[in-house]
Design a protein around this nucleic acid. Sequence first.
RNA 1: GCCCUUGUAGUUCAAUGGAUAGAACGAGGCUCUUCUAAGGCCUUGAUGUAGGUUCGAUUCCUACCAAGGGCACCA
Length: 560
Amino acid sequence: MEQKIKNLIIEALKNLEIEGGDFIVEHPADLTKGDYSTNVAMVFSKKLNTNPKDLAEKIVDQLSRLNLDNKIEKISVAGPGFINFYLSREFFTENIKDILNKKENFGKVNTLNGKLVLIEHSSPNLFKPFTVGHMMNNAIGESLVQLMKFSGADVVTMSFPSDISLGVAKAIYILLEKFGKDFTPNDIVVLGDAYVEGTQRYKDDESIHSRVKEIADNLYADTISPELNVFEKCKKLNIAYFESITGKLGSHFDSYIYESEAGVVGKEIVKKNTPSVFTESEGAIIYIPDESKKNLNTAVFINSQGNPTYEAKDLGLLKLKFERVHPDTSIFITDHEQISHFGVVLDAAEKINSEWAEKSIHVSHGRMNFKGQRMSSRMGGAPLAEEMLKTVGEDVAERSIHKNIDGLHESIAIAAIKFSILRTKPGQNINFDPDESLSFEGDSGPYLQYTHARIQSLIEKGKGLGMVPNYKVQNISDPEKILYRFPEIVEHTISEYAPQYIVTYLIETARAFNSFYGENKIIDESNKEVSEHRLAIAFATQIVLKNGLALLGIQAPDRM
RNA sequence: GCCCUUGUAGUUCAAUGGAUAGAACGAGGCUCUUCUAAGGCCUUGAUGUAGGUUCGAUUCCUACCAAGGGCACCA
């Protein structure tokens, strides 16, 4: 439609013998100002030295002589010289029918048909619990997974757990000391405690340093030993825990690459490309970016002890990703503290295999700052994801009038949390106060779910009265003016990797429907025709809400 | 010191260079003997400072102020 209007304008300009210059066609912010709007008259008025309003009138005059199709109802000039287009009954009729027809497929854009997209997200530290920080990463990652699928891409999901580190060696030391070599862990909390205790002990007691180092070496080298045995069991438990919690959040991972694997590969790459790409310096191997790249800094890839740093590990990860999956696009999600780190890694990667850098996309997110006192981690850091789900779930249960069937309460809690993460621009920090900012009212996940459930109730009531959604009456309602925009919102969201646009759009959609609901009786038993028409609008709204929520990784319950 | 982000109502967030800067929470007032009141309707209130580019700036540029983050062997 947008293109159609553009073409009409170009034709009108041609008739006025005006050429060149850019103008845009967009949706006006206000629904009363039409469905599409263009700034063409303002752009050209200076050049032609005329009043923008007069020029707009001339263009409208030309447009009205053209062969407009029946999708455009009227064209008018408003404000400082905007030309507003109002779409017709025919357009909206066709559109609602299209939505009802396509159902769960409405909004699919096919812009990435045939492409293979790899998405790495929610990467955990084994031995450390899954915190709300990970939930933030997960919410964005999972949303991108759904968006990419919706755009026609084949998606492979991956997580990159950090498995071996000095910290882990410290934890293993504690576990061996406390429980002996036959220790079999069955609770993730024990591991987290050992991690904390190990860190403290290592700080306080220098006499254990050599033993901890030995443990680390044995783990890295895969040497058969009590520590390797305990470690393997812990790793297995950690992955099970990780999959259980991310599963609750709606995520599935096709594969893992462990930090230890990536380290080995990364070290090889760096060595192979020294001195062509990397430089030896003070016993370490470093990368010095080009002078012109001011925002990049020198980084150590292999330290003076000969071990790969995170930089080398990420380089190894890149190689493994592209060798194993061969993606057309590789997306990875981290918090924004790692922006400059990846700037350097990708700059170096480009010189080794340009594909790695060109096809990689780094999506970053902010951090959650906690204000409230209600939840706090025993480790002094961020609260645990499970704790958050539990607390919020209790709040939901308290106010819910429905029983907790099929995980309803949990799905509402997840909606509230994910919504508050995804509503902001990516990269923004989120100030999170569970008591205040986690809302079930107003702009919130539950508000969207509630609107969906409310429509379900309408549809069921209609069914009982023998009414089915059937679109035919003449006035154009506000929800209709918004519903048809869903596919273009999806496209925009995908091109920017910013789920936030979906959030804003869904809120607008739900609000338009709820106002419509407040002003009109949807089901009027005395007037079947009007009822069925309104049911059609309700049903179309429900479809858009459901599809949109799915793109946010949020369930759309039928009842709440 | 250098580099990157970010400064919008009391608070939390919006706004592909456009029209009267939108919401939500909070506060106040209405609204269920009629479809789910986690709803709807009304009132209240904001672009850090100073310049510049532009027909038009929250958006782009410069400086300053403020907050957060990153800058060689942590991840």
